[in-house]
Amino acid sequence: MWMTPSKSTGHAQFCNVMAPYMATTEPTALLRHYSPPAPAYDRYDAIPRELRAEPFVKWAGSKKRHLSAFDPLFPAHFEAYHEPFVGGGSAFLYLAQVGRIEKGILSDLNAELIHLYRVIRDDVEALIATLDQYQYETNFYYRIRSLDPSKMSPINRAARMLFLNRTCFNGLYRVNSSGKFNVPFGRYTNPIICNAANLRHVHRLLQGVELQRWTYETVLEVANSGDFVYLDPPSQVLASSARFTDYSPEAFTDNHMGRLREVFDILDQRGCLVMLSNPNVALNRQLFDGYDIREVTSPRAVRRDGRRRGRRVELVIRNFA
């Protein structure tokens, strides 16, 4: 498994790690691939909400509000689906429900998140039964937070992760220098800890899906020509303002984005369909100049105090059009 290089190893070692996959010619960033749009959002929106699988965790940078805008930008046909920064899984759940995904490989560097996905796929009823015993209460929250997940049973470990995510402050995932989750208790009115129906819907869609704790470079070991790779890396903007996008152990920095451009180029040259979403910042436009770049504006979200948040502009970068 390829590991993200530390600051001390730098770009040179990264290139050595990538060498087996590198093409002998310089990337041309030409749009050699074509995928006609096949909008399916109306079909998705017609699924009754009580029957729809939706993200089961709160996750920074969720693309749930962007799905209607992303819909015509997704490829209509592809072989396997890869999502190396799966997070809350909005894109996967959408594409799976409209029948686009036959084979899926989802991965993330967050071990607790991937463990939760696996338990939902393999033993959702036991997870639901365990979560039914959890309570939204301050002392209970801090007692669960203090537990060492490595010493818990698989079901209790997954329940801990989902409980903390649903009841911590703003749904943040943040760990201290010792790797311990340290987000404080969140103040909510009757938060839903376990949406059993939704977990069962997600369980159904995860059947046959491969779930791995991998760094994003590992997609180069498994993606083949004709596959679709969706990249949704942690936002540098969010990292600088909220400190909750740590990426083992350093934040996902501008250097990481430069490395991700190299991964993007290799996948492009291999014949994969590649799509990346990230905030509309100058660096992203510069790094991916030559590819298809679109601006996507999210609908306004309502804040807890009733006021509306500002719109957020995302860039969607593709090697196909």
Rank of each mutant, 00 (worst) to 15 (best):
H11F: 13
H11R: 13
C15D: 04
A23G: 15
T25E: 14
E26A: 14
T28N: 09
A29F: 10
Y34P: 00
A46K: 12
R49Y: 09
F70T: 09
A80H: 14
P84C: 02
F85E: 11
A91L: 12
F92A: 06
Q97Y: 02
G99C: 11
E102F: 03
L109T: 07
A111N: 08
D122N: 13
A126K: 00
A126W: 00
L131F: 09
Q135Y: 03
F140E: 13
R145V: 02
D148Q: 06
D148Y: 03
I155F: 04
F169R: 07
Y173A: 05
K180T: 09
V183W: 00
P184L: 02
L199I: 07
H203K: 05
R213H: 08
E217F: 13
A223W: 04
A242E: 14
R243V: 04
E250Q: 07
T253M: 03
D254A: 13
H256Y: 11
H256W: 03
M257C: 04
G258M: 15
R259H: 08
R261L: 14
G271C: 12
V274F: 02
L276R: 10
A282V: 11
N284T: 01
Q286Y: 08
D292E: 13
R311Y: 03
R311D: 10
R311A: 13
A321M: 07
